[in-house]
Nucleic acid binder design. Structure first.
Length: 487
RNA sequence: GUCUCCAUCGUCUAGUGGCCCAGGACAACGGGUUCUCAUCCCGUCAACAGGGGUUCGACUCCCCUUGGAGAUGCCA
């Protein structure tokens, strides 16, 4: 029994769609859960779509996600090269071999520019799946002449349209398609590059891929690939087709996840304050489950729990709300120092007085945010006290109002002023002392002090924590200003 | 149009003929703890698309309908 070898074969289009990332994740998980190998192959056969720097995005995304490859363009391997454009000659060789084997033919037809609208192709002559000019009927002699004359050509797959092709998919089960609906698809383009349909088969075979993990958009063309494997006399790999990831638009309509549904690329999500590990955890559950109630997993734990049996058939809708929740869970699990360091860039506090207080502040923020991007708004009041009127002091539950607040501040400000250092241990006893002396709920003085310090009804941390971050000077300034306004 | 696939709460899903008047999670709503908010804890709401079979028994198997998705590119 061969060990499992899977691959991730993205096209360098400039960004990593979460659907693609999930495909990579499952392929990686499958390999890792079986001590197998995971290969990265770049499918850049479409010259027109090539985007500068796109390969780097693929590397960095996989790296951030923690998905490491055993073989690939950057770290090599015995089946290289791992970039399809560098394998161009190879495909031509195999295409020609296939022609000899009878599984393909040269086609000299002009490129068909006009689109045929769906529904109006009752024109049987052009919809029998063959090449429009019936190049498949050309004699070997005619082909040689055209080739010698330098006529541009493509190589198409020759399909025997009798019978049907059946195959077994790991997640969808047995699928059978009648050969008469199959087209003589182009294998080698006029520019000499292979199409995905061809390069894929050649490379998967040559690279010893045992399990082909890909989106189910390839389900209906799989029979054509199998016919290719058969024509070459190669072993057909195990197929693992994944259900699609859908998105929901403002009107509630569901369709294939795209930009109009929100951020769909890994890097956008990271920019929006989602943790790579949370994104990975979330997408792992879009179409798979561990057959238990547990939902929060690290990548290593996913590899441990992964099994093909947990794969689902139905398409899944990407839910940003649940992703946010999952992100907050990962945020809470993180070691304090790690959280402080990854959250800092989002806080925008470099060079400000808050920077030295960051570790303390970060801990206060941790349970109050779902994404890192929420940090600036939560700490804005530290930089600048919001405008607020006396009404802010009114709070029913704490039994506080402007008059009470004035009394609280008048009594406490002098006591605070005597403190050398502001922290929970020094500040809280003073506030508690007030509550005890006046026989009121602790919430009353707390509210009054909080409002004058922050102008907000809810803050990360209480008065003592805010004062610790603000420092004595700024705290006293705000408290005095608050009292003055109640004048 | 044709072909293929899919179908459990709003969303992600458990369920492989009796354990299910369907379980978990997110969201929503209500309550408790707490100096605010958040965390945490407890609870409520909420689904087997419809119709036929098969069976002693169907969410689970079969068929049809409906709905959805994908393919039908010298894109991948």
């Amino acid at each position: 029994m061969n060990t499992v070898r899977t691959r991730f074969a993205p096209s360098p289009t400039g960004f990593m769609h979460v659907g693609n990332l999930r495909t990579a994740l499952y392929a990686w998980l499958l390999a890792r859960s079986d001590k197998g190998s995971f290969v990265l192959r770049i499918e850049d056969t479409d010259q027109n779509r090539y985007v500068e720097g796109a390969v780097d995005i693929i590397y960095s995304t996989l790296k951030q996600a923690g998905i490491d490859h055993d073989e690939g363009p950057d770290n090599g391997g015995e089946y290289g090269p791992y970039i399809q454009s560098e394998r161009k000659a190879l495909y031509k060789e195999y295409a020609e071999k296939l022609v000899e084997l009878g599984g393909a033919y040269y086609c000299f037809c002009e490129k068909c520019e006009e689109e045929i609208e769906p529904g109006e192709e009752e024109n049987h002559e052009f919809s029998d799946g063959r090449c429009p000019g019936h190049c498949d009927e050309l004699s070997a002699c005619e082909v040689r002449e055209k080739l010698a004359a330098g006529t541009p050509y493509v190589i198409r797959q020759r399909i025997d349209r009798s019978g049907s092709t059946k195959f077994n998919d790991t997640v969808f089960g047995e699928i059978e398609i009648e050969n008469k609906v199959l087209d003589d698809q182009i294998l080698l383009k006029q520019d000499g590059m292979p199409t995905y349909n061809f390069a894929n088969v050649i490379d998967d075979h040559l690279m010893g891929i045992t399990h082909v993990v890909r989106g189910c958009e390839y389900l209906s063309s799989t029979p054509k690939y199998n016919l290719l494997y058969q024509a070459f006399g190669w072993e057909i790999p195990t197929y693992v087709h994944l259900p699609l990831i859908m998105g929901k638009d403002a009107e509630g309509n569901v369709s294939k996840l795209s930009k109009r549904h929100g951020s769909v690329s890994f890097e956008n999500l990271v920019e929006e304050g989602f943790l790579p590990e949370a994104i990975v955890n979330y997408i792992a559950f879009l179409g798979w489950n561990p057959k238990s109630d547990r939902e929060i997993f690290s990548l290593a734990e996913l590899a441990e729990a992964f099994s093909l049996a947990g794969l689902n058939k139905a398409p899944a809708v990407f839910d940003y709300t649940k992703l946010r929740w999952m992100n907050s869970e990962h945020l809470k699990m993180m070691a304090p120092e790690k959280f402080a360091s990854i959250a800092k860039p989002f806080a925008g506090i470099s060079g400000t007085v808050l920077e030295s207080k960051w570790p303390v502040l970060a801990e206060l923020l941790r349970s109050r945010i779902e994404t890192l991007a929420e940090i600036p708004e939560k700490i804005a009041f530290f930089h600048q006290l919001p405008e607020f009127g006396p009404d802010m002091y009114n709070n029913k539950k704490s039994k506080c109002n402007p008059e009470v607040a004035k009394a609280v501040l008048e009594e406490l400000i002098p006591e605070f002023a005597e403190l050398d250092e502001f922290n929970a241990d020094s500040v809280n006893p003073i506030i508690e002392g007030y509550a005890a002396a006046h026989e009121v709920k602790l919430g009353q003085p707390m509210w009054a002090v909080r409002i004058s310090l922050s102008g907000l009804p809810a803050t990360p941390g209480g008065p003592a924590e805010i004062m610790a971050v603000l420092g004595k000077e700024e705290s006293m300034r705000r408290l005095n200003a608050g009292l003055a306004k109640l004048g």
